[in-house]
Write a protein that binds this DNA or RNA. Sequence first.
RNA 1: GCCUUGGUGGCGGAAUUGGUAGACGCGCUGGAUUCAAAAUCCAGUGUUUUCGGACGUGUGGGUUCGAUUCCCACCCAAGGUACCA
Length: 942
Amino acid sequence: MKYNFAEIEAKWQKYWAENQTFRAENNAGKPKYYVLDMFPYPSGAGLHVGHPLGYIASDIYARYKRHQGYNVLHPMGYDSFGLPAEQYAIQTGQHPAITTEANISRYREQLDRIGFSFDWGREVRTSDPKYYKWTQWIFIQLFNSWYNRDTDKAEDIESLVSIFEQQGNAEVNGVCDGDTPRFSAFDWKEMSESEQQAILLKYRLTYLAESEVNWCAALGTVLANDEVVNGVSERGGHPVVRKKMTQWSMRITAYAQRLLDGLDTIDWPQPLKDSQANWIGRSEGASVVFNTLPSPGNGNSYPIEVFTTRPDTIFGASFMTLAPEHELVLKITTPEQKPKVKAYIEASAMRSERDRMADVKSVTGAFTGAYAEHPFTKAPIPIWIGDYVLAGYGTGAVMSVPCGDQRDFDFAKYFDIPIPNIFHGADITEQAFVDKAQTQIANSDFLNGLSHKRALKKVIEVLEKMGQGKGKVNYRLRDAVFSRQRYWGEPFPVYYVGGMPRMIPGEHLPIKLPEVEKYLPTETGEPPLGNATEWAWDTLNSAVVSNHKIDHKTVFPLELNTMPGWAGSSQYFNRYMDPHNEAEIFSKEAIDYWQEVDLYIGGSEHATGHLLYSRFWQKFMFDKGLVPHDEFAKKLINQGMVTGMSAFIYRDEETGRVISKGLVGDKKMTPIHVDISLINSADELDINAFKKWQPDYGDTEFVLENGKYIVGREIEKMSKSKYNVVSPDSICEQYGADSLRLYEMFLGPLEQSKPWNTAGITGVHGFLKKLWRLYFDEKGMQVTRSEPSKESLKTLHKTIKKVADDIEHFSFNTTVSSFMICVNELTFQNCHSRAILEPLVVMVSPYAPHIAEELWAQLGHTDSISTVPFPVFDAKYLVESSKEYPISFNGKMRFTLELPSDMGKEDIEAMVLAHEKTQKQLEGRTPKKVIVVTGKIVNIVS
RNA sequence: GCCUUGGUGGCGGAAUUGGUAGACGCGCUGGAUUCAAAAUCCAGUGUUUUCGGACGUGUGGGUUCGAUUCCCACCCAAGGUACCA
């Protein structure tokens, strides 16, 4: 009987679907285990072999856990809102929902072919109103909450209102906007409804605020940083300017410290934690207030607050620098300097934030003509603006200490500003002195002679006493903008009364995305939802109604923005626990049972996006008492990228001939991508097939080496345009899903990126055939009830140990090797014993589930192999009577010697020294020292 | 610049607490089988060699009886990033 993978795989995929083999119950009397993959965006291109890498790894682990007796939750879904479908809609008029649906079916077909053990009964799609109902619901919960620093958690907004009613906001220690005014209970009661709402917005965890965006007027939309290249839009090359727009924001900064602290409690890769920690960017220092001096143009004095991590260097401050966007800039600039300053502000508005930050070399800035008073020396110090200071970080203003900060130093040198030295013994002629450990402060009045640490403490004390500053912790993390001017996203459950946002009551959710004629922004520059004609909220009937009914009395306009891509992915892992619940986001029972994700596998590119936002929402949900853990995933693994092996032919532009790689030499030739399906495993090009694919080359002369055309190979990202994409379908077709699964794992360590080379798959495919032949010969089943040999038992148990250890360490590539070694050995031993071959098939099952199910059934079992207990390792089969000792001389192994395992050190030493090969190696020298590590090695030093 | 990860045969990679470097697979070479091919099987495959051996894990040092593994300095590649006060 031959190994017919096509038949076997179709059969078992059908069996699993029909029997719902992998359905997870919410209360099975077993311990739970939750294995999660990052759900994909269903793109039009379909899956390539890089995509399923992580899914295969998680599937192996999920199946392994089932063999260990766990009730495993292993769901899959789609992150199905997104830009490509919308772009396609703009071009073709096709509704994104239709495109998305088609793409999802294609993804599903491809996924099904690989034999994943997903519980498809729990599938979620972020673009499904039944799902985004709960995304909207969470938004409302955030809106109705504020962050209380005293209790260090989110609380209901009602509690804030009652504090305001009783005592105003003076005593409230809540996270709020920087410009929140102080008011008393009396003031609060005097405010109009609208004014009160405006105040509350400053405290809500999701709020409306002006944020800076990259506005592209020609496209009528806001662009992401990476869509802006050199100040113009990537698509079309239209001008882009920084502009303030009213947008929804998430007050993630309220959670900065907890997001940082939480990293210590989760088993995530260190590089990923590092990048989150850097993103949050905690720095300790002080905020210091400098007052401006009245100037010819402006008789007032304004306080300018700066944040500095080096308040100890305050006596070295010889100027101040404000971000060009700083609100005081135009107020304090002298008439004389106005033209220069205005020009500079305009110029920097043209540059994207990324451009401003990437440009390290050029120093730019402008003098405002104004001065501030140094808090201690009372000296006037000039106020400059410079775009190396970012409006969004700290207070958008810095005290510049050129002797202690390289950027300030460069700025001062460039504009010829004095550089006072306040460090004892430091040379600052060429560069700033930044070594904190070596710092001894000088020329600084009461700080003279102090170290960095002591000066820091002292100066903060004095500043606090003067009321001109205080110690402060600053975070780089900014609140996350939550509005998008797009069509294909979650609509907000928000309508506007007198310009103030109101939430639609939860019982009327979901608010479904309206139909529009065009998916582009409106002519007046409003988001695509501005094209909808049925987009108003009728408060009497609690329904979405036609726009012409808007009367601002009972019918109000709805929000025109939609939510960003990360909205739908920030809680999906909890929704999987109870995906069909229409009354709650998930039942208490479900969350109490599943608790949290035990293992999450996905790409590291989500480090500071999805993974940070999800942690934020989880902490919020925890504060609200909805989830039992404030971290959603205990363990996380990043899978690496699978890169493609592009193939090139080389065209000699002078002669027009195409030269085989070995004959190219030093001559400059044009490399041209060729489709990798035309290349065999020896890098030879099928010239006829190539000419058929590219008829233009029909008459081209191919210069061969040894009668063959050899292509060049290079590793690149897999992409259609590079003709190096390998689809899993074609692999499944040719070798089967089991071969694909094994090969993806065999490629190398899960976390590392590695190139795909289809040629190598014959190795694992050959292994599966060889495995099959242990069970079947030409005549049929050849498994016997005979007693297994000692060697076979040893082979089996050696493999059990290795495989179990490797799976726990997610070292799936080495597991595949040990399977190969095991099958090679059993074949050599001519082993057909059921006592060996039954446990073997269970071990293989997580990796190659189809062949395992088939062999299991052929062995006479009637149930699926999926929950059969994993074989248990027994050390007694590995006991050896002798050990082959490596004998090394000065650390280099020269020969091996077989000795009894229980032989003692002295006996070993005597045996080894007496050996003729030892005498030969020593060449008459006396050994200085003999090291014997029993069971390991012998080393002779001479 | 900074942070992170990595650098081992022709290629992917292995060596789990410092103990036989190159497991396993691909590719390649030779052979068996075949009319032939595919498939399968067997043997070989780091470099070098006077066939004794010598040298070999990016480079240079160090610790150690012994280093791919630990320490210091450097080079290169990939990914991330923030001129962050």
